[in-house]
Nucleic acid binder design. Structure first.
Lengths: 229, 229, 229, 229
DNA sequence: AATGAATGAGACTTCATTCAT
DNA sequence: GATGAATGAAGTCTCATTCAT
């Protein structure tokens, strides 16, 4: 009897469980985007995922848990994508460019996900225990921001970045501007596109271009330094 | 609003009404910031403003109306401040710099107001009839963004800005990045300051510096062009 | 306008409010007795009192608040009745007898109220902050148990009670037995009466008689001391 | 129950079942005491007993069944203990004294069990079909209360008890007071001990002493009758 | 025999808003 | 003009229990 509980037999259950989790998570993610993280109700998530309300609580202890779970997924995916992109680049500037590229792509093709992050920031900014976010970040992207700080330092060292940058401050300032721009554009989305006729990721790319121009070391000899990785 | 203020003085009645309105608006603004726009309840606003819940409805038809009213005030004030700052500058780059300065100041000294805008964007982004915002914008800052577009064009023309900028796109891209950065920093506020030991407006200024460096025309002759207005 | 809010005009509202409170309280008290304090739902109380659920919350912040409010009323009434009864008696034994009489009467004529106390004890015994009960007790019956302790001491002194009693211990022991008996009989109520054909207060009186016999000083000279006050 | 235990040993199956039953019962009993009979959830009982929720239903048809089963066990044990104690006594008063002793001991050493009975009374008083309890009582302590009635009669006859007692009434009155006192003290438990510095069983013993003094025949000749068995 | 999954049936509460005075 | 009272409409979550495997 105890034996029956081995992995072999647990598997079918686990698979089912995982499928249900995903269903709920996906329904929630969609609804958070369509209706807003705060406005989407458990009842809606429930209905959209095909399970009954009480069942959801067997998978997630409450609405917040769903939010955090999605967040973790989003983080993990993004971290992986960024890591992969940056590995291909050589100079610090190249790496930063790669990062910016991923962000632009996300804006173009995973806009809902970026909007999710934007909403998360707005909703939880006031109340999340900062530690919790940091814990997730730590678990997922070892190094996290520290890594980027190093990037600036490396860039200054390898001559690809301006020499008058303060690694720590610049790093945070720039990252913040990029993230702020990306999330804002994701939120505005269609509205901007309809009004100005440009896809939002084009706007993000242009902003990034200006920022990267601002970071890049000035040419000393008339020859423009290639800054695309 | 301006209109209301004039009339108000014609009749003691109106003066009283105006005072009440302000009280409610101020209480709401404070509570939106302290508790969040969505979490702040009418009951709280009511209690904080010293009027009874039902009375509020004699001044504002519903909670949203309060939000929009505050928004309008915030807009008007900001527009005035920006306009004043920009008038003092001569070159296009100078004007942009002045604008950025106002934004940094707001972040430092009116952070709650910036947070209000951030919340507004996040909450209403999904549902506001874009026209409504545009109407406000139009009423207040005649020209609005159009003005800024001209700025870039002027800057390219007067040689203070890079020649390879597309006035329309760059303008939106940069403004968006600046606003995104400013609002994000306002929201993160204390959290960032505690973690990195820098006041958030310093981070904003650094981001702006990089952006302006990226916009600025490259020196052609070794002499660095003065870009502060 | 401010003037309109004076007592004169507030009165009609206050009266109404008080009437509503009572209605809710009475409905709750009845339901707590009929269905049990834990099983009675807000919806039932609501329905029984003729107000809608949300209205109840304008009078009481939650179910517990209703319980405590009833409790306070029950306490106050009982304290008043006990005080009045005891004032008429002279010897300590007489006072105790008077107290016991009130308890028996309550059992006969306010059985639901005694049952309320029984339920309260059982439900809240585990979790009430003892201080809260003590606070109520203090507010209502100044002296509270202390008074009774004195009673035993006086009784020993005036010769109406056995000389080998330890005022403090005996007092608590006896009061506890009386209260325990009274509440248990209230709970068992009909069941006992149907089974044994005696009204429960008769059983309580008999138990009290035995207890009082046990407290009373033994006659020294063959003459039985009158112990009824 | 006794029956079950015998059969149990016939088949390893049954032995296992019996072990599971016990586990569940023990977990339930503990939780009923810790968290309250109503507040303890099936999920908690389940978790504490190491079985899964659905499995519990293979042993007990519902939560109530668990309560009744525990009750039966408690009853049986208590009856056995009381019977043993009373067998050693000779006079009626002696037997009553022995009974009281057992009750005091239970209060001191099996307080959780007494609390269980107290909770049972409070919760089920309203709804149990009296017959059910009576059936248990009958099955376990043959004679039940009838026995005690006889005790009083015997006591009056053998001169150890007052002659003016009505066997039936007094018996129920006194038993009720004792049980009421015992359960109340069990419920109050720590609270009383902290406040008055006496172990609750001391208070129970004092109450019993007074009651027994009240029951005991008065000395006729100055020699005090020994009333301890 | 054991159990994972699912769920019906509520429970309590909150809140923006209306309306009669 | 001010306000007390009332409430509809939700919303989140809990729990005992059933059922298929």
């Amino acid at each position: 009897m105890a034996k029956r509980n081995t992995e072999a037999n647990r598997h079918p259950y686990e698979a089912h469980r995982e499928r249900q989790r995903r269903r709920i998570l996906e329904a929630a993610e969609r609804l958070f985007d369509e209706r807003g993280m705060d406005r989407a109700t458990m009842a809606e998530i429930t209905a959209a995922s095909g399970v009954r309300a009480s069942t959801v609580y067997q998978y997630f202890s409450n609405k917040d848990a769903i939010v955090w779970e999605i967040l973790e997924g989003v983080f993990a995916e993004a971290a992986a994508r960024i890591k992969a992109a940056m590995e291909g680049a050589e100079t610090a500037l190249g790496k930063i460019t790669a990062l910016v590229d991923v962000m632009a792509e996300d804006l173009a093709r995973r806009r809902a996900t970026v909007r999710f992050m934007a909403q998360f920031d707005a909703m939880y900014a006031r109340e999340w225990p900062a530690e919790r976010l940091i814990a997730i970040e730590a678990r997922i992207s070892k190094g996290g921001f520290a890594q980027f700080r190093k990037l600036i330092r490396d860039g200054v060292a390898d001559g690809s970045l301006r020499s008058d940058l303060d690694a720590d401050v610049t790093m945070h300032a720039v990252m913040n501007a990029l993230i702020g721009a990306q999330r804002r554009l994701a939120m505005l989305g269609d509205r901007v596109e309809k009004q100005y006729g440009k896809p939002v990721d084009a706007l993000f790319r242009e902003a990034s271009r200006v920022i990267l121009l601002g970071l890049r070391a000035e040419k000393k000899d008339g020859k423009r330094r290639k800054w695309k990785a």
